[in-house]
Amino acid sequence: LETFPLDVLVNTAAEDLPRGVDPSRKENYLSDEDFKAVFGMTRSAFANLPLWKQQNLKKEKGLF
């Protein structure tokens, strides 16, 4: 999966995202380093959170 810089994904409308980016899964296009910096946890820890908590975190970080 291709990764993009944080500033390309945060608070970006679906139509302005790079081609192929799923707007409902912007976090998947962050590098592992950016993911950890944004969410303060690994991808696996994030995946283990309840869906509502994942969505709330994504909203807080501008990735929803």
Rank of each mutant, 00 (worst) to 15 (best):
P50N: 03
P18A: 04
L57V: 05
M41L: 07
E60M: 10
E33C: 08
S24L: 15
M41F: 04
L1M: 12
A37Q: 13
L30Y: 01
L49S: 01
P23I: 08
F35L: 01
E33P: 08
F4N: 03
K53N: 11
L49W: 04
F35W: 03
M41Y: 05
R25T: 07
L6M: 09
F39I: 04
S24Y: 10
D34Y: 02
R43P: 06
V38N: 02
K53D: 12
D32L: 07
F35C: 00
Q54S: 02
E60G: 06
A37R: 12
L30F: 02
R43H: 06
D34I: 06
A37F: 14
A47Y: 13
L57K: 05
Q55N: 14
K61D: 00
S44Q: 14
S31P: 02
V38R: 01
T12Q: 09
M41S: 01
D34M: 06
T12F: 08
S31C: 06
P18N: 03
L6Q: 03
L30H: 01
F4Y: 14
N11M: 08
K61P: 00
S24R: 13
T3I: 12
D34W: 05
V38W: 03
L17A: 04
V21D: 02
E15A: 14
T12P: 05
A47Q: 12
R43I: 05
V21K: 03
A14M: 11
K53H: 13
T12E: 06
N11A: 08
K53R: 11
A14Y: 10
S31H: 05
W52S: 11
S44F: 12
D16Q: 10
N11V: 08
Q55L: 15
Y29H: 12
L9C: 05
R25V: 09
L1K: 12
K59Y: 09
V38A: 08
S31Y: 02
P50G: 02
A37G: 09
D16C: 15
A37T: 13
L30D: 01
R25E: 06
L17T: 05
G20M: 08
A37I: 13
G40A: 08
E15Y: 01
N48E: 15
V8E: 07
T12G: 08
T12N: 08
K26L: 15
S24G: 10
F64G: 15
T12D: 07
G40R: 07
A45D: 15
L9T: 03
L17F: 07
F64Y: 15
S44A: 14
